[in-house]
């Protein structure tokens, strides 16, 4: 069913070098609307570098990026965000001293006029609108007036996700979303990824936790030493096969001889 649609993101032959080191070497992949893609690979395989090219942190040395069918030049993170590509890093980028709705609106605060001429923060508007987006995603947080400091890891992750969804992200990149969470919280975040997918948001998940990725991803892309070594539908594969691709099992066999 997915093949009939046009990809929302397509990268072609991306090469990124750091001095003499080739971090990403000619990788192509595409992601369709509503699809969850697991990007897998060992440390230093080039996952993060590839993702940073898409999110505007790095600029590729060779290759092209297409978004919604058009070639795009993403020079900085704001370019990516303006296109609708949001990246949620492991550190989440939330201001812990501010409350939930202030974080959702951070940098894009809603203002109202006080005394007819002074721009002040419209807390009521921001609170109700934030509540709406959290409800839409089925996220439960006791009160949006609580500071981020008081929330659990999973709730913080949910706030970071709601924040990007509120600003109309069509494409979400998540870097190790479940790494620091307890089991129950991991499940909630994975449920949230499914909800996003059902609402048409495309998601790339980078994770070391194969079990999590197998639960939510439709498709898996495996990198090793900067090159794409495998692309599999999750239904048609198993963790053993994926692990052997990640570590390069044929190399192990070769060395035995």
């Amino acid at each position: 069913m997915i093949e009939e649609r046009k990809p929302i993101l397509e990268v072609k032959n991306i090469v990124k070098r750091f001095g003499g080191l080739v971090a990403v070497n000619g990788v192509s992949m595409e992601v369709y609307p509503g699809e969850v893609v697991g990007l897998l690979g060992d440390n230093g395989a080039g996952k993060s570098t590839l993702i940073k090219v898409v999110s505007g942190v790095y600029h590729q040395d060779e290759g092209q990026v297409f978004f919604k069918g058009q070639e795009v030049k993403i020079n900085n993170p704001m370019d990516a965000i303006n296109l609708g590509i949001e990246t949620i890093y492991q550190d989440l980028a939330l201001a812990e001293n501010l409350n939930v709705y202030s974080n959702i609106f951070l940098g894009r605060e809603k203002l109202k006029k006080a005394l007819g001429c002074i721009d002040v923060l419209d807390h009521k508007y921001m609170l109700t609108e934030s509540k709406k987006v959290l409800d839409r995603l089925g996220i439960e947080i006791p009160s949006l007036k609580n500071r981020i400091k008081m929330l659990s890891g999973g709730q913080r992750q949910s706030v970071a996700i709601s924040r990007s969804i509120f600003w109309n992200a069509k494409f979400l990149i998540m870097d190790e979303p479940t790494a620091a969470l307890g089991v129950a919280e991991q499940r909630k975040v994975l449920d949230l990824v499914r909800t996003l997918s059902a609402q048409g948001v495309a998601v790339i998940i980078i994770s070391h936790q194969l079990y999590d990725v197998f639960q939510v991803a439709h498709r898996l892309v495996i990198l090793r030493r900067g090159e794409k070594v495998g692309e599999l539908m999750t239904r048609e594969t198993n963790p053993d096969e994926v692990v052997s691709l990640i570590v390069g099992a044929e190399l192990v066999e070769n060395s035995k001889k």
Partner: peptide, 24 residues
Amino acid sequence: ARTRFGQHTYAIGGNIDAARRAGI
């Protein structure tokens, strides 16, 4: 306490990277 300038001041003090990535 009430304006965007103040809010951004708190945000920068809370997490300067978050403030940067939020476009401040």
